[in-house]
Design a protein around this nucleic acid. Structure first.
Lengths: 404, 404
DNA sequence: AGACCATAATCTAAGTCTTGAATAAAGTCA
DNA sequence: TGACTTTATTCAAGACTTAGATTATGGTCT
């Protein structure tokens, strides 16, 4: 099978065409390597990117001239000219991440290295998720964090927003979120009325997945699945290093994976969904606990402590669902995140691994495939901000240096 | 979301680096366009590939000189020089596809346009799947089809083999197939002992999926899932135009998707797998029919005619499984293939669609997403031969023209 | 029939990009 | 101070695509 090493043929047309695209691609690759590979010398970059020293030299020259990259000290080399370390300029620009959650809207400001500089949180009454109110919260939040962070507004590169439900790509960013009662809310349009900053809207589970992929437990993997467990259950599928979205941009709905055909009714209207068993709301219902969304966390902790048979069943169902994911995706890692996921996984990780393994005899599955997320409550906003960084990479690679 | 158009950032390093790779990529793209786009003029190719007329001209010149491409008539243009049509030379080389199935080994010879030129089938007693016997069948089959096809042996570009179970990539092509009792059979090594032809081994469900993707119901899609239903159930996941294999190259095991947590025992050792309900073997067992694998087909037909409640339950389970796939992958199309799948789908397609839709209320799911495979019993061997074609594309793009 | 027009394919000059080799820069060690 | 190392930059060469000019091929008009 020596010959079978190459990838499977892309049926569609691959993009790269002109020699200029090549430069863009290489530039983006170098920038990415620098961003994720921490400070590195030009020589290191040759190794990582596979480019020649000459190319690295000219490219870093451009990037230094643009102040996108800065020097970061030197390091001695035994008996030669010391290496100059380079890194992405953390204060070249800033990114704002927004988490539109069930109980609050969180707006946070980050520098390029994702250090948090300021935050503004707004409680939202659970029953009412008026789109315009949410938009107002976001817009005032943006102003607040910019002034609190003490940075010039024109250095903000954009706003990333993580929302529940499915986001239809397009200038309007139509959001459909059943739990919010949002039928087709044009959140993009609402926000654009109040700000001129570039805007990036995505599903909250996806932004959290991005955060775990870039900075959390998924770091370094090319094939992973992030399962986000809160009141409901969402997910992010990382395939060959990038997030998979499917034909209609709605892929990754792990919560509606079926675990019991014809089983318990789910709030999506179907039956037997994973979410109908392992979502926090579903666990509480099954345990007969009544709690409004404000103190779901305490209530769930209570159920988990109680030793109720519901807990064992939950683990069982989660194991079944995860084993389906293992068979379909054969991932290198499965990351369990979200507040309910971390609570459940923090106490029952071994049981969850065992339940998955019991359903997954056939394959090369190691139980340490399943890990907990490393990021806490900020993950959604953080991940939303990475949408801005992503765009920044693209833009920086695209921009032709002015060669003064 | 105007800015959100680009793809999600590839965390890994994208390949393209030198300007030469660019040419290779463009060449491969052109060749692919010509192969799948049927006969086309140079001008058409400009439109399809996005390359300039000059580049298309020089590239087609090279390909014509190599006899990889040939002229295929002309077509008038109202009031101008007529277009010369080009196409891939169907007799430039040949591909052999092998289907190692439960009841027989099929070896088939195709030209580049996948016209079948010769075939050799060998029955295998179901109990015994001696690896060496299988290898001998393949090798004699290869000799047979070459001489029967009346083509020069040196024009055979390679042998593609579709086998059950999981294939470990590498020169040995270790095959693990529980149903065959193959623990770690080095099929690649066995075959290489008897032939010098390039060898490509892959899972049979994957090769069938390739066939449907290239020539069958999956043609033209970038996000699709092929479900192969025979005695057992396998699958192929097409993500962004290429087949997804996962970290350990074992992705796409649709048969072991869980549909009933803790349900019916599956031959894989776990419980509640889709295969344990909708695989032909499982259907017969549940209906209480005893049949050896030779006449499973007739037996299954009998069960389907009988109106047994098992049939309704099978549809129900299949619907649950397919809805899981819809939620996870949001595919443009789901293709049901394999002899059992075609038999089931031929009679109950509407019921299957309805059962899936009932479980999939939340998403933009149209029932015509689910279709039947268009290829029959040859699909596995045909798809195996496409592995050879794939490699041919890579090689032809790589090869620098000699510029005499 | 011959001038003229429209379309297709090829040729030419120019521009962009990466590379390898040569050169410069900065230090260490004896 | 001078030989030797390692890092970074510069430069000429080579590869590739492109826009625009040129050639090829046939139809239409008078």
């Amino acid at each position: 099978m020596a010959e079978h090493s190459g990838e499977d043929g892309t049926m569609g047309t691959p993009e790269r065409r002109t020699v200029r695209d090549l430069r863009r691609g290489n530039r983006a690759m170098l920038l990415r390597a620098l961003y994720f590979g921490g400070p590195a010398s030009r020589n290191d970059l040759c190794g990582v990117t596979g480019l020649s020293a000459a190319t690295v030299s000219t490219m870093t020259g451009d990037l230094l001239a643009d102040h996108v990259v800065v020097e970061a000290g030197q390091v001695d080399s035994d008996g030669g000219r010391p290496r100059v370390l380079l890194r992405v300029n953390p204060v070249y620009g800033y990114a704002i991440g927004v988490d539109v959650g069930e109980t609050q809207v969180r707006v946070e400001l980050f520098d390029l290295e994702m250090k948090e500089l300021a935050r503004a949180h707004y409680a939202v009454r659970s029953a009412r998720h008026d789109p315009e109110l949410v938009a107002r919260h976001i817009l005032t939040g943006v102003d607040t964090v910019i002034s609190e962070g003490g940075i010039p507004a024109e250095q903000v590169l954009g706003i990333g927003v993580g929302v529940p439900g499915i986001v239809e790509p397009g200038p309007e960013a139509l959001v459909r979120a059943k739990t919010f009662g949002w039928e087709a809310v044009p959140l993009g349009a609402l926000l654009r009325a109040g700000t001129a900053l570039p805007l990036y809207v995505d599903n909250g589970a996806k932004t959290m997945g991005r955060a775990e992929l870039w900075f959390g437990s998924g770091r370094g993997t090319r094939d992973a699945i992030m399962v986000l467990m809160g009141s409901g259950v969402g997910g992010t599928i990382v395939a060959d290093g990038s997030i998979y979205r499917g034909a209609g941009k709605a892929a990754g709905e792990v919560g509606h994976l079926k675990v019991v055909a014809g089983g318990r009714a789910c709030r999506c209207g179907a039956r037997g969904c994973l979410e109908a068993y392992v979502g926090a709301e579903a666990i509480l219902e099954r345990a007969g606990v009544v709690a409004d969304s404000a103190d779901e966390e305490a209530a769930l902790a209570g159920v988990l402590e109680s030793g109720s048979p519901v807990v064992a069943e939950t683990v069982e169902m989660l194991g079944a669902g995860l084993s389906s994911l293992v068979h379909l995706f054969n991932p290198e890692r499965i990351v369990i995140g979200g507040w309910a996921g971390l609570m459940l996984g923090g106490r029952l990780l071994e049981e969850i691994r065992a339940a998955t393994a019991a359903n997954t005899l056939a394959q090369p599955f190691q139980s340490d495939t399943i890990v907990l997320g490393r990021l806490g409550a900020d993950a959604v906003a953080l991940g939303a901000a990475t949408l801005v960084i992503e765009a920044f990479f693209r833009e920086a690679a695209f921009r032709q240096s002015v060669t003064t």
